[in-house]
Amino acid sequence: MHELLQTTVNGLTTGCLYALIALGYSMVYGILKLLNFAHGDLYMVGAYIGYFVIQWFGGPNAVSIPVPLLLAIMVLLAAVGVGVLGMAIERFAYRPLRDAPRIAPLITALGVSFVLENTVLLLFGGFTRSYSTPTFISFNSGITLDGVRIDSVELMIFGLSFAMMYGLHQLVQRTTLGKSMRAVASDREAAEMLGINVDRTIALTFFIGSAMAGVAGVMSGLAFNQISNTIGFLAGLKAFTAAVVGGIGSIAGSMIGGLLIGLCESFSASYVSSEYTDLIVFGILIATMLLRPTGILGQKALQKV
């Protein structure tokens, strides 16, 4: 029972991170019908930004400012930095291809992902870097519920993820920007005719989606401690699975999908075998696509001819 609960908590932590990445995937896919392979690498860049913020403020052993302030700076800088990077990628790599055959932007996305991964490798080296979180956030902080420990990093991940998802939901449903996002997603040309600035809307979508991936990167660095230039690929793949399982284009769906994938992973690691985790996630993806291609909450896409 005890182990079961602990596994659940761990799974939910990973799941929140997947959900945050999945949201970006889902938003970009919804608005451009583009599978942005570079999204996982944006998450990796976010993790690196967080790492260098820690180094800038004295390193994990001698943080020169209060820890909550440090965390806030890490999250903010990663969000803004990665968001701007995402916008730049959209502007210079994807926008020229907006009316090209579907396969062209996909190949460009592969290229962008490859360039990002190797740029980080060139600039910062290929070795694994450590956030050393326990040295500045005590491992014993946090709460213990009935013997199940939830440490403060996990609490922060839960809080921040849910807050961001709620904020995003409000943004998409309540604001003008959200309305124009939905309009562009459902019919770009019609939206343009109605006076919506399509380029600006798409750029902002990329900004928001990438910023969330950046925040997810920082939090994964805090939670798992280890970052390298290759963490983006698999995380991106699983987050996409989460987006598909939940129903691509749906915010709540991405969240549920992310949590489900996280839980599956942690349960299969504890009760089956950690070596087969990826294969199990893959199996879930295939099963979802074959049995319910629209995902849990997705709507059936109308094929436009």
Binding site: A93, L110, G111, V112, S113, V115
Partner: peptide, 8 residues
């Protein structure tokens, strides 16, 4: 990097 750039 050059392979990625070639694709883009």
């Amino acid at each position: 990097i050059m392979i990625g750039v070639v694709l883009i």
